[in-house]
Amino acid sequence: MIPPREVVRQQADDMVAGYRRLHPESFAALSIDPIEVLSADHDVVVLVVSELGEAGTPEADRCSVAGMYLEEYDPPRLRIAAAASAGRRAFTALHEFGHHLQRTDDGLGDRLEGLPDQGVMLEEAACDLFAAKILLPDDRVAAHLGAPGPTAPAVVDLWKASASASRAAVCVRAAQALPAPGHVVLLGTDGRISFSSSKGLPPLRRASDQSGVPTIRDALRRGGRAKGRTRLRYRDGIEGEELYAQIAPMDGYLLLIAVTDSAPWESFSLPSRQPATRGASWVCSTPGCDAEFVAYERPCEHCGQPSCPHCGRCGCSPKTVERRCSSCNLLLPLRMYLGDSNECVDCH
């Protein structure tokens, strides 16, 4: 479930106000050097490390940045990856501190608990927006991102005008200004997602490979600029709905903006007639079945293939080609049976 945009904004605004209330003397400095300011705060311990050490856990995989909030320690720890740029480390430190604010403030925690189906995504999105609001004040954002909504070149210009703000912070602020549901995505030169921020659509996974998406492939080949209709990729080859996309170079990265409609770089952009996601195509590997099908479910963790809806088997299943029907006693191919049933479809 995707939390409403207004709820995310209210949560982030309350986080900013909460910090200002608790630490008025350091609030102004927080946007200049967050790591130094937070390191002096006895509520948390900030650790800049070469390896996160606990990546791969569900919580770390869910996080949009290269950092972790470890609340089991006393005081809690913010673990920040040292490999990132100074701007990215600042954004990550603020993002992780956002988890601390939401888990130690009763009012913020109550809002998360009030949306049980959306609480995890609300917490994560509010952390991103809290960090972005600290690093990029509203007046600076408004000066670069006009009323029709952000274009990719305008977002790049906002980043260049904000020396202390990371690319990630700019992506979050741009996503909040999108005129329609969509994504603002930072891509590496290999086409993998370095960071993304979404509005009204399911979030894209960090490090997912988008290099095969036609518009992104064109940008990688043509100096980082491209635009057109596109479908971005979720897990296991599943594609999202068709979006209007624009891409611009961002000093070693690509900045992609994609929206369902009202794209400010297009003179006319209506919602797609095919808004649904598109599943991945498979051919069943079970001998005697060989059915072609589209899958949305996660593939088997052992063989990497989803279950075939025709024979009910994945790549781990026994390679039996035929089975004798318990009713008609005929030896028939597996496609004539439903799952593990011993009766063929004609006798069932």
Rank of each mutant, 00 (worst) to 15 (best):
M1N: 11
P3I: 02
P4K: 10
V7P: 07
A12N: 03
A12Q: 07
D13Y: 01
D14I: 07
V16C: 08
G18H: 03
Y19I: 00
L22K: 15
E25Q: 13
F27W: 09
A28W: 13
E36Q: 13
V49P: 07
A55W: 06
G56K: 03
R62D: 08
A66S: 13
P76H: 06
R77C: 11
L78S: 02
A82F: 02
A83D: 12
A84D: 09
S85E: 10
G87M: 08
A93H: 02
F97Y: 15
H100V: 05
G109Y: 03
D110E: 14
E113Y: 13
M121H: 12
E124Q: 03
D128S: 07
A131E: 06
K133S: 11
L136P: 00
D138E: 13
A142R: 15
A147N: 10
A161T: 10
S162D: 03
A163Q: 12
A168M: 08
V170Q: 05
A177K: 09
P179H: 05
A180P: 05
H183A: 01
G188A: 10
G188N: 09
G188R: 12
T189F: 12
R192K: 13
S194F: 11
K199T: 04
L201K: 01
P203W: 04
L204R: 07
R205N: 09
A207I: 06
D218R: 15
R221I: 03
G223N: 02
G228I: 03
T230L: 10
D236P: 00
E239T: 14
E239K: 14
E239W: 12
G240Q: 02
A245M: 03
I247G: 04
A248K: 02
L254P: 04
L254S: 00
I257S: 09
T260W: 01
E266P: 04
S267F: 06
P271R: 05
S272Y: 03
A280W: 04
W282Y: 14
P287D: 03
G288A: 02
D290W: 08
Y296K: 07
E297W: 05
C308M: 04
P309K: 07
C311A: 04
P318E: 06
V321K: 14
C328I: 01
Y337R: 04
N342F: 10
V345L: 14
C347G: 04
